[in-house]
Design a protein around this nucleic acid. Structure first.
Lengths: 220, 220, 220, 220
DNA sequence: AATGAATGAGCCTTCATTCAT
DNA sequence: GATGAATGAAGGCTCATTCAT
């Protein structure tokens, strides 16, 4: 266990870093699909082409490999589908549109990379890996949305009100990721294919949310 | 495996039916809490007070017991937290409020009957058992919500528009079931305990959705 | 784990009892030779001719099998080399002689049965199995010896003094079991074979101990 | 394995000797406490601050390190708790007292140096390393005791009789090392703590043995 | 119609050892 | 002369399943 416990970020030999990386890349898609308990270390090591003891050596045990994989997914994930970098002149409505579209695209695009699927899994069934994920990854996006929404609401909504409104936007987005199959069945196959693309969902959610925000009246 | 393959609804002896029922009643709450893979057949049989071979005898294997349990849950669906039976005089806004509150209660209250919790689990990770579940469990509720929402929207919204609006309401509700832990962390423990009860969530979601519906303008 | 936890002494089926017995008989000699940690469950099951899961089923885990084996050894052991059943007319010196001889014979006879070797191992490295072993098995013998020794000591030795004298007798006996190899080397091979038989050791220990007891003066 | 097979006492570089020594010093206390099989090479190397491959390099494998450690312990045998250096005027009874006390202290005191504890362990479960150990470690002490005892016995006891008497003394001492836990249980926790200290055990064993020796009558 | 016992595949982990610098 | 990484063989245990009454 020498390695797993005394690991630092520096001075890793090339071989070591390579094996770690092979393990993370192999474990990622499998964890994303089946979750921590649905996966065997043999499967991971086999796919990574390393010895079964390597997990113990480099990560300590399966759970710590899982946590490392979530972290790795988060790091490798930020680049893809970044939020637009808005000019000061861009209207809040446009920002909302950009935000919603980015979120939906991240979640719904075909061939969603395993990194996203793994992070989504964490949302549904948080494990120990989730705490820092929320802080480092979700919170910045969320705070951004809160600011956009707040600017859209008339009067001076409290931070709490803005947060709740932002959550209402997020909920609308998440629905299609989480319960996509059910929605497809409820609205019929055909309508789904036609009217539930990223573009049209973005439009709908933005119109719905814009209307809600603009018509907002503070609860006293 | 004689029994499991030739199973019909008729001609079951009393004892046999009793054992089946004990198994279903025992398995239900456990599956609802831990899911198919988090449960051992020993645990189920132990709690049911039947022999460990009974699952094989009556259902074939664990997975088929699970499916049977979902079906059983649907059939015996506890009628707790039913939707209010609205008088014609009740306003649409009140109906929306009643609907949202009931949905949230079903999803968030801890003492919801296991049948409901098991069905909720199915929504999040659909299995084979899910298709028929949607039709006779979710669709009626969903259609009801569509009607409520449609009546709230000015002009003559198309069915498709009404459905999308209804999905926006559902998404807001589902968020707290799906990502409750993350919301708690995002808004802070304290605020969550105070402002994310069924009652206040109902208020927020209704105000948000009412505003959105009433301000709706048909997208040409 | 149904069986291991709910095991009672009654109503065990024939098969079950047979398998349990096969396991105990197979495990005994191996545990006696190599101790709890030196043995693998695969070895035990292989020698017993049962499936590897049988240990879990019948005993819970390896350690509980070990404890059961110690208990089994104790039960099967009492018959062999019992203490003589002394007539009231037998002198205390003769009783001491009989006691010491029986103890030595139990420990030193060639082909000591595995039961004895296992119990001896417990003496040297007590495990959890040891507590009840002492109470049920060693204490009765020990108390017997205490009474013999006490009767040999002049005056009215306290119970504590008698216990210590009895331990001095036991220590002399145990030495040849525990450190037999070393004694053999210290006194030379030849002398050992000739003068360290059960008979002559009995004589020596009795003479030494008798002299000590009879010359005892209470330490106020 | 170059080193392990061609190892001699000469021509070792300074660093090499240093690593060897660090390993021996680190392994000693751990082996003394847990024995050969209770210790992992990682633990030893970790505590020694050397690489895990060093054991193989310098000693071949774990077992040979163990043997080397026993040898090392014997060579560097700590001279704590040495026997008193008796003046010619000291009585035999006092010498016996000093001898017994020293032996008991070596075996029972917790802060005995690891070298002594490791050698004690060898006595109880002799390994390959034991033979030479007896010769140069135990025999001198034993012969000393034989002389003391012999002088205490009236008449002219044979060497053999004196050896047996000495063994009777040793057996009494060893008991508390070997079966301390069981004695504790037999005489009760309280009595043990109070009356089985090194001091009182010394008193008892000496009184018992002195009485036995002085009352000795040669067996014809 | 039901039971208790038995099965074997497979799980994660641990370890001493050896490889390649 | 020393190191860190890699190896593979077990290790104990768990599980859903099936056998034999």
């Amino acid at each position: 266990m020498a390695k797993a416990t005394s690991r630092g970020t520096s001075a890793l030999s090339h071989r070591s870093a390579e094996t770690r990386c092979k393990l993370l890349e192999a474990a990622g898609p499998i964890f994303a699909e089946k979750g921590l308990n649905g996966v065997t270390v043999r499967e991971i090591c086999g796919r990574a082409g390393v010895n079964i003891a390597a997990i113990h050596y480099h990560f300590g045990d399966k759970e710590r490999l899982y946590i490392a994989t979530v972290r790795y997914a988060r790091e490798r994930r930020a680049e893809q589908y970044p939020f637009p970098d808005w000019d000061a002149a861009v209207s809040e409505a446009e920002r909302l549109h950009g935000f919603v579209e980015t979120i939906l695209r991240r979640m719904l695009e075909p061939d969603v990379p395993w990194q996203t699927r793994l992070l989504m899994r964490e949302v549904l069934r948080p494990t120990e890996a989730c705490r820092e994920l929320v802080e480092d990854y979700f919170r910045p996006d969320f705070e951004r949305l809160v600011e956009i929404v707040r600017a859209l609401m008339p009067g001076r909504p409290s931070a709490r009100e803005a947060r709740q409104a932002a959550l209402s936007v997020m909920g609308q987005c998440l629905l299609y990721r989480i319960a996509g199959e059910i929605v497809r069945q409820l609205v019929s196959e055909d309508e789904y294919e036609e009217a539930y693309t990223v573009e049209s969902l973005t439009d709908h959610i933005c119109r719905f949310s814009l209307a809600a925000c603009r018509a907002w009246e503070s609860a006293q």
